[in-house]
Simulated assay, not measured.
Amino acid sequence: MIDYKIYIELGNHNCVHKMLSTAFYTEEELEKRGAIYIDTVSLEDNDDTVNGQCLQNTYFVDKYGEPVLDGEGKSNFKYEISKIVKLSKEEKEQFFPPVKTQPSELEKLKLEQEVTAQAVQDLILMMMGGE
């Protein structure tokens, strides 16, 4: 058996944004990064790379039922009073409000073109005595 230590890195609001382990980093490297130790997992002594990769991909799903990040790249968990806590829907909405996208230059030009075309049509109708 090989023991891997599990660490997390936090973002805003103490949200977990990354899981790391001693499968790929030394404890010293993880501590230098400011990562927080949360657990130790023992895996069969077969292939370190395969075990480490499986651990990285499945630890949160196996232990907490969901991956660290959702499909939109938003944290599913926060670190609170030395434990992992699932974010509520309300917390996710508060911490990660929808981002209003700005129209691209092309979209702006298309809108201007539509407005101009409508204004030209209105002007032609007015000149012809229409409404």
Rank of each mutant, 00 (worst) to 15 (best):
Q118G: 00
T58G: 02
G65S: 10
D45L: 08
H13Y: 14
D122P: 01
K108I: 15
F96D: 11
N14A: 12
V85E: 15
K83L: 05
S75H: 06
E27Q: 10
E105M: 03
D70E: 09
F77T: 04
V61D: 05
T116R: 09
D45Y: 08
I84Y: 06
I38E: 00
K18V: 04
M19C: 11
T26N: 08
P98M: 08
Y59V: 03
P67T: 13
H13C: 01
V85C: 12
K78Y: 02
V99Y: 11
V115Q: 15
Q94P: 00
T49V: 13
N14M: 11
L55S: 03
L69N: 06
A117W: 07
K63H: 02
F60P: 06
D70P: 01
K108C: 12
V68M: 08
K100H: 10
N76C: 13
Q56V: 02
T22S: 11
E28Q: 14
K108Y: 07
E105I: 09
K92E: 14
E29M: 13
D62T: 12
D62I: 05
G34M: 08
F24C: 03
E93P: 00
T40Q: 13
S88H: 11
T58I: 10
E91F: 06
P97A: 06
V16T: 04
E72F: 05
K108Q: 15
D48Q: 10
K18F: 03
H17G: 01
G71Y: 09
T22P: 11
D62S: 12
K110C: 04
K110P: 00
Q53Y: 09
T58C: 10
G52D: 08
V115A: 10
N76D: 14
K92Y: 10
S21T: 15
L20R: 04
F95K: 04
Q113K: 12
Q56M: 10
T40H: 02
I124F: 07
L106A: 07
K83E: 15
V61N: 03
H17S: 04
L69Y: 03
S75Y: 04
L111R: 15
D47E: 10
Q121S: 11
M126L: 12
Y37K: 07
P103M: 07
